[in-house]
């Protein structure tokens, strides 16, 4: 080719131009697809906001669901979501970090480890509704726990466990090897090295993963529906804190509940447009929460990368 190119500069120029044009066209298509995707996301957000923003009032946040759309609110839903998330975080984060720590730092290279790795990866791909069936058959009926906040939190914790595990492992892999050696070098044992040195260093990365996992859990609807959580809850669970000793109380764990996405699903499934407004308003709140959490996670990761680089 170079021979002909040398012989015919015009021909070369044409070829170069043709290739440049090809690249330009593909680059444009790429950007176009991106714009379509972004446009869709924007349309979705603005559609929700247009439909629902008018309903987001203090009364909406402080009212129970109602048969009259205009008086209905998401009080029980957002309190339910908050309490369920507490359970999910308390269960999923330690278990996920523990599993990630084991797989990354302790696990010998053998068949058992391999089996666990395949398992974790497969669990990440199990549809969320299957977790709901697991919870229905196991927690609700086999263990007789009923449709409670505890069960809701547990099922979402199992669901996001693979996310926390994968994030933990990535965060651990980013810890410089020198830190590990110097910590062992002072005579620390394996657990001391992990607890005092490795985990603190991996904390921002683990936190990012935990937030992403929790934001996924906040929006999950299917497993909560499957365990048969009621959609009409016009009361609040017992308060976790009280004015008299012992100040904390765990009765709320055994309380029935509803969560934001269930409330939204309930309203979107009704024929009346007025309820659709409520659904949109709930969607705005839900979207706001998940995007905020993800934005925070992205920011954390960005800051983390910057500090690692310098």
């Amino acid at each position: 080719m170079s021979v002909t190119a040398l012989g015919a500069p015009a021909e070369t120029q044409r070829l170069v131009l043709q290739k440049k044009a090809q690249d330009l066209i593909f680059g444009t298509i790429g950007v176009l697809v991106l714009f379509v995707v972004m446009g869709l996301l924007l349309t979705l957000v603005s559609d929700l906001v247009v439909d629902g923003a008018g309903r987001i009032t203090p009364e909406f946040l402080t009212s129970f669901p109602s048969r009259r759309a205009a008086q209905a609110g998401v009080l029980s839903a957002w309190i339910g979501t908050s309490l369920v998330m507490i359970v999910t975080a308390v269960v999923a984060v330690p278990l996920g970090v523990g599993a990630g720590l084991y797989l990354e730092e302790y696990a010998p290279k053998n068949i058992l480890t391999d089996a666990i790795e395949i398992n974790v990866s497969n669990l990440a791909g199990v549809p969320s509704i299957i977790y709901g069936l697991l919870a229905l058959g196991f927690f609700v009926y086999a263990l007789g726990m009923g449709q409670t906040i505890l069960v809701g939190g547990l099922v979402l914790a199992l669901l996001i466990l693979p996310i926390v595990i994968v994030a933990t492992r990535e965060a651990l892999r980013a810890v410089p090897a020198g830190l590990r050696e110097s910590a062992y070098g002072i005579g620390a044992n394996q657990w001391q090295v992990m607890w005092n040195y490795i985990l603190p260093s991996a904390r921002p990365g683990i936190l990012t993963g935990a937030i992403v996992g929790l934001s996924r859990a906040i929006g999950e609807t299917a497993p909560i529906i499957t365990i048969g959580a009621l959609t009409y809850i016009a009361f609040l669970p017992p308060s976790p804190v009280s004015a008299s000793p012992p100040f904390v109380n765990f009765d709320w764990l055994n309380s029935p509940f509803t969560v934001m996405p269930i409330q939204m699903f309930n309203w979107v499934s009704r024929p009346q447009a007025a309820f659709h407004e409520n659904a949109a308003a709930t969607g705005v709140l839900l979207l706001g929460m998940t995007l905020l959490m993800n934005g925070f996670a992205i920011y954390l990761r960005y800051r983390l990368r910057r500090t690692v680089r310098t």
Binding site: G178, L179, E181, G185, Y197
Partner: peptide, 11 residues
């Protein structure tokens, strides 16, 4: 006691 190639104080 050991001191490594690259200074590696704990964070």
């Amino acid at each position: 006691g050991m001191v490594f190639q690259k200074p590696n104080p704990f964070p």
